[in-house]
């Protein structure tokens, strides 16, 4: 009896492996940015509820990790979409082209602002990129307290929870704050602007934004850096600082008046459209009026919508499926 059981199990397993290999996919697979993930998942769920098609599967791999998987090749074993919190890089285009992914469609879905926030019981502050750079940079003056940078800032120790180098939020922070702040602070040329100080004042807190929010609500002296949606969902615990006197809000991010705003994207493989069912419908759902229009459901989740004229253009792009130049 024992031998029989083993034989049955082994045959069953072999059969399973074979069907696995011959598997044609009927479910959309999406990878990419953890910033776009909260929006893409909501769209995927709607897409699944709407039709008879399966709900897309979404992995949060980070923008860079997503590009790597996306550009690995064509066919059912590679993802159909990748989400990105920055535009595709030249090197990633090359990787794609090398692996036969020659036609990629780029879709802008909205904007995101990055908040520099602290405990809502503490004082609400205003910073300039230059002040933030001085507080955070490895090649800066490395002050101990905020009032060493500017007398208007409080006499409190500098304690900042920052995103790790793998995240798209960090890329945006580097290009929008560290770069301009470096110039504003009058950095001597020839030295690196990016790079956080490593004496403990700036702490890389990992990708878990919920954790940063909890740390801020426990520690009135700490500041955190994360996406607008987390600030929006936790307004009873934390508040966003103003940057150059500008409050972080839907309007200031949309108009790019708030200095740390960036567009969010997703990329589609043209060769998969029509092969994997539902891709066209998913793209249309993501940029539909019901999702990103004036009262769209993604706005409730903290997505900052595109200007109305841009929305029309994006919808046209999806109808025409124009690939980006490689």
């Amino acid at each position: 009896m024992f031998r029989k059981t083993i034989a049955t199990l082994a045959t069953g397993l072999a059969a399973l492996m074979l069907t696995g290999l011959a598997h044609a996919r009927d479910q959309i697979q999406i990878v990419g940015s953890s910033t776009v993930y909260p929006f893409a998942t909501v769209v995927a769920e709607k897409h699944g509820q709407r039709g008879s098609m399966k709900t897309p599967v979404i992995e949060s791999t980070g923008t860079g990790g997503g590009m790597k998987l996306f550009c690995a090749g064509l066919g059912p074993s590679h993802p159909d979409f990748t989400n990105a919190s920055r535009a595709i890089k030249g090197s990633e285009k090359e990787l794609c082209a090398k692996n036969g992914v020659s036609e990629i469609i780029e879709i802008i879905v909205g904007n995101d602002g990055i908040a520099f926030a602290n405990n809502s019981k503490s004082q609400k502050l205003n910073f300039t990129p230059g002040q933030l750079w001085m507080a955070m940079a490895e090649n800066g003056p490395k002050p101990k307290t905020w009032n060493e940078i500017d007398a208007s800032l409080p006499n409190a120790p500098i304690k900042i929870l920052a995103p790790p180098p793998t995240s798209g939020t960090r890329d945006a922070w580097d290009s929008l704050i560290m770069g301009p702040g470096c110039k504003e602070a009058g950095m001597v040329s020839g030295k690196e602007c990016d790079g956080f100080r490593e004496d403990g004042a700036v702490e890389e807190a990992g990708e878990n934004d919920t954790l940063i929010v909890n740390r801020l609500s426990a520690d009135p002296e700490a500041f955190g850096i994360f996406g607008f949606s987390f600030l929006d969902q936790n307004r009873d615990k934390i508040q966003g600082s103003t940057i150059n006197g500008i409050e972080i809000s839907l309007d200031t991010i949309q108009s790019y008046d708030y200095p740390i705003a960036r567009p969010l994207f997703f990329y589609a493989k043209k060769a998969h459209i029509g092969v994997i069912p539902g891709m066209q419908e998913y793209m249309e759902e993501f940029v539909s009026d019901a999702a990103i229009g004036d009262y769209g459901y993604l706005l409730d989740r903290g997505l900052v919508p595109l200007e109305t004229s841009t929305q029309e253009k994006v919808r046209n792009d999806i109808r025409n499926l124009t690939p980006i130049s490689m």
Partner: peptide, 11 residues
């Protein structure tokens, strides 16, 4: 991954 549908097989 974010998976909504309940899987009915290991595939």
């Amino acid at each position: 991954a974010f998976v909504v549908d309940i899987p009915t097989s290991p595939l």
